[in-house]
Simulated assay, not measured.
Amino acid sequence: MSTDIINHIEFPVVDAERARRFYEAVLAPLGLMLVISIDAARAPHGGARHGFGKNGYPSLWVHQQIGAKLPIHLAFTADDRVTVDAFHAAALANGGTDNGAPGIRERYHENYYAAYVLDPDGNNIEAVCQRD
Rank of each mutant, 00 (worst) to 15 (best):
S2P: 08
P12F: 08
A19E: 03
A19W: 04
A19M: 08
Y23P: 00
A28C: 08
A28R: 14
P29F: 06
P29K: 03
G31T: 05
M33L: 13
V35T: 15
D39N: 15
A43P: 02
H45V: 11
G46I: 07
G46Q: 11
G47R: 13
R49S: 09
G53D: 01
G56E: 09
S59T: 11
S59Y: 01
S59R: 13
L60F: 15
W61D: 06
H63R: 11
P71A: 12
H73D: 04
L74V: 14
L74Q: 14
F76M: 09
D79R: 13
D80I: 06
D80R: 05
D80E: 04
V84A: 01
D85H: 11
A86E: 12
A86W: 09
H88D: 04
L92C: 05
L92P: 08
P102N: 01
G103H: 04
I104W: 10
Y108V: 04
H109D: 13
Y112V: 06
A115H: 01
A115N: 03
Y116R: 12
P120Q: 03
D121A: 06
D121S: 03
D121L: 04
D121G: 08
G122F: 02
G122T: 13
N124W: 06
N124K: 15
N124M: 10
I125K: 04
I125V: 15
E126R: 02
C129I: 02
R131K: 13
